[in-house]
Design a protein around this nucleic acid. Sequence first.
RNA 1: UCCUCGGUAGCUCAAUUGGCAGAGCAAUCGGCUGUUAACCGAUGGGUUGCAGGUUCGAGUCCUGCCCGAGGAGCCA
Length: 443
Amino acid sequence: MENQMSELPGSSKPVTTIGDLSKYDDTSVTIRGWVYNKRSSGKIHFILVRDGSGIAQCVVVKSQVSPEVFGAFDLLSQESSLTVTGKVHKDDRAPGGYEIQVEDLAIVHVAKDYPITPKEHGTEFLMDHRHLWLRSARQHAILKIRHRIIKAVRDFFDGKGFTLVDSPILTPASVEGTSTLFETEYFDLGKAYLTQSGQLYAEASAMAMGKVYCFGPTFRAEKSKTRRHLTEFWMVEPEVAWANLNDNMDLAEEFIEYVVQTVLGNSAEELKLLERDVTKLQTVKRPFPRLHYDEAVEILKKNGVDFQYGNDLGAADETIISQQYDRPVMVHHYPAACKAFYMKRDPEREDLTLSVDVLAPEGYGEIIGGSQREDDYDTLLKRLEEFNLPREPFEWYLDLRRYGSVPHSGFGLGIERTVAWICGIEHVRETIPFARMIYRNTP
RNA sequence: UCCUCGGUAGCUCAAUUGGCAGAGCAAUCGGCUGUUAACCGAUGGGUUGCAGGUUCGAGUCCUGCCCGAGGAGCCA
């Protein structure tokens, strides 16, 4: 955090943030923020001020301030904005360890009837007030960790020679041909669709740059209504030329280990506020278990699941498999029947794909889906026909197999599911600032 | 799309067999010099989701609708 030394007009004290108070012990400073809560014993007032960097207890003693400053306390309501000047003082009774002995106080704006009180609220009410809910300590911590995760994602790929090459959000056709897409009019060119994956374009970028990743919002118009689904979510998709399925799995596990361990090292305070059991994250170290689809099916049968070979794994199946391990598990070689057209088949088992899903522990489900891509022109053309996909919108994609085709692989990681897992929270709607779901597109 | 559950004060909830619609918090007023979701006292606050039905009487029972939550499918 910057050690800010600017001054407010009319104040001779350095302006700082609450997160930096420990640098100013026994010094008078000014902070700017919002009332988080207040208490009083009559001649001594306590104001909890938050400013985004922390929460500071400000103590107003009647005998030490002007009557105007002391009386200002009565006008302050929850979430009113104000500036406070006073001496920083180490005190174990204060949340955060430091408090401010108030010398001067200026109200900037009085908030009237702030709807979110320091008591319990229901989900619907909180989501209706999401724009205000973000100010609460818990949501603040989640957003901080989300930021840390995204930074770790980018640092990881940037540090390994990847180039960020983003894919378009408006696309002319479905990527996988199966999902339901959001549709919009596009001038004289007919329909355009909001992308459900940047992958196909990332494949083109990888042929130009070698190692790339794209990172952006993706959209699914499916009527999913579970704690793991949003209609708008963020996905990071690396794509690597010359990489096979094993290279892809090596990359995925190194990537997840890096992200989790980085968050553990940098966001301890936020994880503690969220009451996350970090011992469940400390075990997230390479190597991750790798299960062939056939082995995964065996585990399900051993656990009494009546599983039909060839089906995709359901949410309950994924939970049973992930519960066998203390770290993410990689399931590879899924049947072709439940995977996308672009996935390369196992040369020795044409019914299986060179695919891999990474299942997060503790029942958080699939956080990564990836594969080695089909790189043979004739085979890919055949797949398009088998999946009843039109050839014309994929001509550019077929070009990648006409002009110097090479083996290549990649995967997509869902940011919100990853945030939910690392934070240990129930529902992905709390992992994104403003969730978009089937029955909610406001605020 | 299907299954399950729910909708009562600004918020979280209660209301016995169908019998005067209540509490805590928030708000307002008063008290308190170390509070930690402070505490203590007082006051105001209701189209019980909407429409219809049964009944002397409906928050409660019946029918339809609306809205929401959890799950399935699909997926990250």
